[in-house]
Design a protein around this nucleic acid. Structure first.
Lengths: 177, 177
DNA sequence: ACCTGAACACCGTTCAAGT
DNA sequence: ACCTGAACACCGTTCAAGT
């Protein structure tokens, strides 16, 4: 890549991170280009879709999730599964709008974010299998169940981490007596 | 209201119901006006905001929820609460986009839909209180917990009623062994 | 090879003119 | 009193022209 192209790329990443942090993933792309001192066309050249830009900004954080999962597998499988679901909640809700963005990406294999969804799913499946082996959770529990509850809680409690944790625990422990 | 105004009002309602049914609550307002054989301005005159139009279209269904709740109170309080949560899920997800619309309305007292949210909440609170009296549910369970789980499940399983019911039951029964 | 930004497209909303 | 629809606003996206 040409030197000026690379510099523009970096600037766009920096400004996109700032904009997503301040206004969520729906931040104006035109504003991001302007903040980076670049024409809109340049933004589109480097990041053909909004999802490409989101992926580039959040890639590190997505990849850190794998490490988080590795750390968790050391402990008790039931606790590990809870820790993993909570880690996903924190990750997804750390950037406003990401929950809605992922809801689209999950069902669209063409989306640049689709692969990240699948990575998280496969980690969930692994931790779920372990938890089942030790009898920590109901044997009929499935990975799609976990994905749905995590996305649902993320959506309805996007800006309230304490409530996310509470709802997760209600889900795990049950509500009926 | 003048006769032609009333006729336009009715036509707009009919076409809006059709459009929301086909395309969800994000349906184009311009298309609705066109389908009703009316200028966009007329639509805005009768329904200043999209939420006003949604409310007018769904008012009957919202009001039917109160009757549903009355029927449920006859039976076992635990079953009644489950039935009520399920009824809310069906109602909310029957119109695509309504979950997202309500998520905004809940936090905005100015929204025409805000009152409907509060009505549902107060019914929830009543059924929850009854269920607690008979020891059917955890005593620390709150109405906001119920609202959050219903909206979360509605969002993540909007087009899959069977999964809605499954997740609700997982929530009620618990997942850990 | 890459960048720029005007031009286009799309849709929601308003308001001057008409009946 | 109510209706119409052109005009305006806003934002995302493309592409001809420039370096």
């Amino acid at each position: 890549m040409r030197a000026d192209a690379r510099r523009n790329y970096e600037r766009l990443l920096t400004e996109a991170a700032a904009a997503f942090g301040a206004n969520g993933t729906e931040a104006s792309l035109e504003d991001i280009a302007k903040a980076a001192g670049v024409g809109v066309g340049t933004l589109y050249r480097h990041f053909p879709t909004r999802q490409d830009l989101i992926l580039a900004v959040l890639r590190d954080r997505f990849e850190a999730m794998a490490a988080t999962a590795r750390d968790l597998t050391a402990g008790d499988p039931g606790r590990a599964l809870r820790g993993w679901l909570l880690a996903q909640l924190h990750h997804i809700t750390a950037t406003r709008g990401l929950t809605a963005e992922l809801a689209v990406a999950v069902n669209n294999p063409e989306s640049p974010l689709h692969g990240q969804c699948e990575s998280l799913f496969s980690i969930s499946a692994g931790l779920l299998a372990k938890a089942k082996e030790t009898g920590a959770v109901r044997p009929d529990l499935t990975q799609p169940d976990l994905a749905a509850i995590v996305h649902g809680i993320a959506w309805s409690c996007e800006s309230d981490p304490a409530r996310q944790e509470r709802l997760l625990d209600l889900f795990l422990e049950g509500v009926l007596l």
